[in-house]
Simulated assay, not measured.
Amino acid sequence: LYNIAQRKEVSVATVLGSIPLNMQFRRSLIGQRWDRWLHLVRRLTEVNLFGVEDSLYWKLSGSGVFSVKSMYTDLINTGN
């Protein structure tokens, strides 16, 4: 779908912010492409965004802060 989108830089909020959806494709969406589009729209409408600033959380340490030790320990324990 991304490859046939006319405006690749448009945000999800812009697309979903109008009815009909503000999205144009270079080709008609038929068959499997149409099914994929409907699936994507359904998934996106289920997402709830909050007006909170994004933050990073490193799940391999208790504090949520990245450390080489936590990464190394995880590598050793998983055998990668």
Results as ranks from 00 to 15, higher is better:
residue 57 Y to G: 00
residue 10 V to K: 08
residue 12 V to E: 00
residue 77 N to C: 14
residue 51 G to R: 06
residue 73 T to Y: 09
residue 33 R to V: 08
residue 76 I to C: 13
residue 21 L to Y: 09
residue 55 S to L: 05
residue 2 Y to F: 11
residue 63 S to G: 01
residue 65 V to K: 12
residue 76 I to N: 12
residue 64 G to T: 01
residue 36 R to M: 08
residue 64 G to D: 05
residue 66 F to W: 11
residue 71 M to I: 06
residue 8 K to M: 08
residue 22 N to W: 07
residue 47 V to W: 05
residue 55 S to C: 07
residue 58 W to Y: 14
residue 71 M to V: 10
residue 36 R to S: 11
residue 11 S to L: 01
residue 43 R to T: 05
residue 76 I to H: 08
residue 26 R to K: 12
residue 74 D to H: 15
residue 31 G to N: 03
residue 16 L to G: 00
residue 6 Q to I: 14
residue 57 Y to I: 06
residue 51 G to I: 01
residue 1 L to R: 03
residue 3 N to T: 09
residue 75 L to M: 14
residue 57 Y to M: 06
residue 72 Y to A: 15
residue 79 G to D: 14
residue 80 N to Y: 02
residue 23 M to T: 05
residue 38 L to K: 14
residue 40 L to W: 08
residue 10 V to E: 13
residue 53 E to G: 01
residue 19 I to W: 04
residue 21 L to I: 01
residue 22 N to H: 11
residue 19 I to L: 02
residue 40 L to G: 00
residue 76 I to K: 14
residue 5 A to S: 15
residue 50 F to M: 06
residue 31 G to S: 04
residue 5 A to N: 03
residue 14 T to Q: 11
residue 14 T to D: 05
residue 21 L to K: 02
residue 72 Y to E: 13
residue 57 Y to L: 10
residue 13 A to L: 06
residue 47 V to Q: 09
residue 45 T to R: 12
residue 33 R to L: 15
residue 69 K to R: 11
residue 16 L to Y: 01
residue 4 I to E: 04
residue 45 T to M: 14
residue 62 G to I: 03
residue 7 R to L: 06
residue 23 M to F: 11
residue 34 W to Q: 15
residue 45 T to C: 13
residue 38 L to R: 15
residue 66 F to E: 04
